[in-house]
Design a protein around this nucleic acid. Sequence first.
RNA 1: CGGGAUGUGGCCCAGUCCGGUCAAGGCGCCUGGUUUGGGACCAGGAGAUCGCAGGUUCGAAUCCUGCCAUCCCGACCA
Length: 491
Amino acid sequence: MAKGLPKRAEDFSAWYNELVTKADLAEHSDVRGCMIIKPYGYAIWDNMKSELDRQFKATGHQNAYFPLLIPKSYLSKEAAHVDGFAKECAVVTHYRLKNGEDGKSVVVDPEAKLEEELIIRPTSETIIWNSFKNWIQSYRDLPLLINQWANVMRWEMRTRLFLRTSEFLWQEGHTAHATKAEAITEAEKMLEVYADFAEQHMAMPVVKGWKTETERFAGANETYCIEALMQDGKALQAGTSHFLGQNFAKAFDVKFADANGKQEHVWATSWGVSTRLMGALILTHSDDFGLVLPPKLAPIHVAIVPIYKGDEQLAQISEVANKIKSELQALGIIVKFDDDTKRKPGWKFAEYEMKGVPVRIAIGPKDLEKGTVEVARRDTLEKNGYEQEDLAPKLKALLEEIQENLLNKAKSFNDENTTTVENWNEFKSVLENKGGFILAHWDGTAETEEKIKQETKATIRCIPYDTIEEEGKCVYSSNKSTRKVLFAKAY
RNA sequence: CGGGAUGUGGCCCAGUCCGGUCAAGGCGCCUGGUUUGGGACCAGGAGAUCGCAGGUUCGAAUCCUGCCAUCCCGACCA
């Protein structure tokens, strides 16, 4: 592996950074904190996006688009919200440039100062609710179920490709409901959509739960989240869904007339996932040879590499390869036959491994004789001979098996790296030596949460749905606790 | 915004302390040929105002001043 990656065991962080660039997913731009998503990386995002979009529509949502720029005054209408985002907003102050005095440069024209500054959206609640005010008059207008695919900008101090960039792509759902119960149901339903997508398509198991009050979204009454465990034992928040109560309805004065003609504020939710999911996908499955992609999200399912001497042999192999290709395509499998004569097979093998292509087929002169092909699967790196006869259905089944295997592997990793602890020493020792998720009793106070964070850098990732109500003692304060919560160091 | 580091062809980087055939090497790229069952080899070729702006000097990638950008460690976050 002369041109390979740093090993995960030696430098996990360097491994991740180099993998992202070497697998041709993204690169740094000249703009601080902003990335360029390259075609191969965008193809994966596109696949995520299509599936999520399909599920949003299947659950009754419609797409719409709102402006990138938000008047500054809007942001301040919801107090908690502005507190949460103020420190990381980019601000547009002018609308014109002019030539500099040296004649070569351009400078901001001081005459062109905006009356009211515009904020580049860090999230769109405010500008969307300003519109919802006009869209909602009656209970007949509800529920209003809107989703937006957009870019947003948060001026982060430290960035990492996909995991945290200043500008990122995401979807944000914004819904309005007549009742509190209905809004809560919506927020919970969308979290289920996210969890299902993570498991079934990304092959990434997640823990569903509630955020603690301190970790809640700015302006939310309740934040639901999915938390995923990465290979290095750190947690990653993969998606959030918020019950916003009537906070935004009150801030933007969004009322509706109920069936009795009585004016009520509407109940709201918002929910989102971002290109951070790309980071989650990479950190969940990839290995020291490169990216590993679940078939359901891979831009290429099968790569065919010919091994040949001379044009004549290549022509013979191409005939077999193209036949296999069309048989696979007939089953909906995306195939690339790589007959590039400039690259040697070894180079191609390494390349498709780096890019995470789930299945690779090699066809050489020996295979022509025997009527076979060599099939290599990316997830286990196993190679096996297959008969050319009836290959397509077997590979279709293999792709399904790979998808399943990746999920199972990730599930066992999660299980092995989720530890229940009973006391503070154990907590610290597990965190330091093993990492991963830690289930422990917590007294429910923000003070304890903060102290644990300061002493160990571990935060409460969520209060999982599936921990039981039980009598217990807080792992830190020894005060009374009613259930275990999920701790981890997080991205 | 504090602490540390870096900036040299598309990429990785040597050279900076001690100014003077010094703009080196590797990868990649282009051309031709030989190759092809795990990242091929040979030959030739193109490509750099040494981050930017001043200054010192006969002479600056190298010394001085200012600026800019990026990366790492903190506080902030999906």
